[in-house]
Structure formats: C-alpha cells, structure tokens
Design a protein around this nucleic acid. Structure first.
Lengths: 144, 144
DNA sequence: TTATAATATTAGAGGAAGCTAATATTATAA
DNA sequence: TTATAATATTAGCTTCCTCTAATATTATAA
C-alpha cells in the first residue's frame, strides 16, 4: 500500500467520519471538518481520486474505495488510540489532546499503536496501578 | 515565540546536535543529517536566518541564536522523551522508534512531554510495575 | 604558489497544499 | 417554472520544500 502524505490521510479520515454519519460525504462537509476552503478540499479530493482511494462524481457524492477505506480506518484507529491515551492515561484535557492526537496519528506504526493501546488498558483496568499513577502524576506534574 | 514549521524545527534540532559536537555547524553536516541536498539546507538556513533563529556567515559557520537555541533544545527534549518512552516502555526497537519519535516530536506540548516523562519514570523505576507490564505486554502483544 | 578537490551558493523548476475570485451546477422557494 | 440560494468547480496565484545544474568560494596538495 502506497504511502500518502499526512494531509491526504486527514482527508480520508474526514471523509470516513462523514460517511459514518451520512453514508456519503460532500465537499462542503469535508472542507468544514478540516477547516479549509472548498477549492482546497476539491484539489485534495481530485488527487485522492487519481490514487483510486475514493470516487468522486462531478457535483456529486464522495465515496471511499476499499483501499481508501482501509487507510482511513487505520488512521482513525491510530487517532482514537492516541486520544484515549492522552486523556485517560496522561490526564490531559480533551481540547488540548485532540490536536496533538491529530498530529501524532500520522507518525506511528500499527505495532506502536497496539502498544499504546495495551499500555492504556494495562493501567486503566488495574485500579491499584491507576491509583498509584494518578498520585505519582499529581505529585510530580508541576516540576520543571 | 513564533510557531515555525516542523521542517524548520528539524533544521534547528540538527544544527543544535552538530553544534554540540563541533561548536559550529556547517551546511554539509546539516544536509547529511537531514538527508537533503545542500541547496535545500541552504534555503532553510536562510529562512531561519531571516527569522533570527541562527546566524549564517557566507561560506562560513552556522550558529544558533539564543532564540533558535531555545527552540532547538525544546524540540530535542521532546524527541528524547518520546524515544525513551517508545524504547524503554513500549519495548520497540530503536530503529523503528527513531523515525516515529521524529514524527511525533513536532506535535506535543511541553505539558504533554512532561507527562510522557513522568509515566516513563513511574513504570521504569518501579520494578514490580515494570515486571507486570512486561508480562502483560508479552502476553497480549500478538493480538490483532 | 597554483591546480585541484571540497564545499557552498545561486538560479531555476516542480509538486503539495493553501488561498481568492470567478464561474458552473444543483437545489429550493416563490 | 423560473429566480435565487447553496454548493461545487475552475483558474490562477502564493508559499514551502524539495530537486538538479551551474557557478563561486575556500581548503588542500603537488
């Protein structure tokens, strides 16, 4: 599977999320979700279409192909895993965690994602460790 | 402090590391470290010079300014923290960890970095937790 | 000291990703 | 059904970041 840029990954992820809600995505929704202007979204969508990662009918729907969906899901999975780690384990606010998860999600491998998930569960579902960690964090988090 | 692109952060970090070894950095070293051609390095160095993050004498040395050094150190610190986390806690090989740390280092805040460091120390320096985590990881890491 | 090698720089091109302004199409409401 | 609003697209420009080829400077070795 070819490597695409992190920007293009963002577009696939956004289209995937819109598809979840509405079956198909539209240019306006994509542009709004990624906070870009419609022409910017269009040009990304056209490149993704050339890569056969989605199908785009003129003035019509946008739909991920099987290959596109696969990439989109994997990006979103990394995003989710990192977000949960930042919020539930590192104890960061959701608002600051979101953009950081969005930044990191393009850099980690499947194996790394899995390890993040394991560590999250290891801590989260062991009350004594979770408690110890929370206390440790509380105690040291104002240092330096 | 102005936000610069992650590419420019990479250049500052590389120059910082070269400075550590040789007092001053040179174009060739920077280009080699970042795996780009000299003209690419030059153009980045010129932009950084305009931002007053480094001083660059024609055909001569490259030296970070105080502002540049501050950014470089902070990037490198994030890099180090993430690398140690990936290797010592998540148990990943150094070769796969390096590029992933390089990717993530541009996305995390100072607070997030600190939390990563705390979590690393919390696990690393508690032998019983470390042992439990290693076993847990070993047991589950082949799933999915 | 001068020729050669190494290094640095400039010039110019290209792709990615963004924008605005203008235009085309589709959807909606009178 | 037709005028208007909403949406999508095209055209053309900008900046960032990369490259190669050509040129300039500095360092080294004969």
């Amino acid at each position: 599977m070819k490597k695409i840029s992190s920007k293009l990954e963002d577009y696939l992820e956004a289209i995937y999320l819109l598809q979840q809600e509405n079956i198909v995505a539209r240019v306006k929704g994509v542009a709004e979700m990624l906070d870009v202007r419609p022409p910017t979204a269009i040009s990304a969508i056209q490149r993704l279409s050339e890569l056969e990662l989605l199908e785009h009918q003129h003035y019509g729907y946008i739909k991920l192909t099987r290959k596109g969906l696969k990439i989109a899901k994997s990006v979103y999975r990394r995003h989710e895993t990192l977000l949960i780690f930042l919020v539930d384990i590192l104890g960061l606010d959701i608002e600051v965690s979101l953009p950081q998860a969005c930044g990191m999600e393009h850099s980690i491998s499947a194996k790394t994602r899995k390890r993040f998930e394991l560590l999250t569960n290891f801590i989260k579902f062991d009350p004594s460790i979770l408690k110890k960690w929370r206390e440790y964090c509380e105690e040291h988090c104002d240092e330096k």
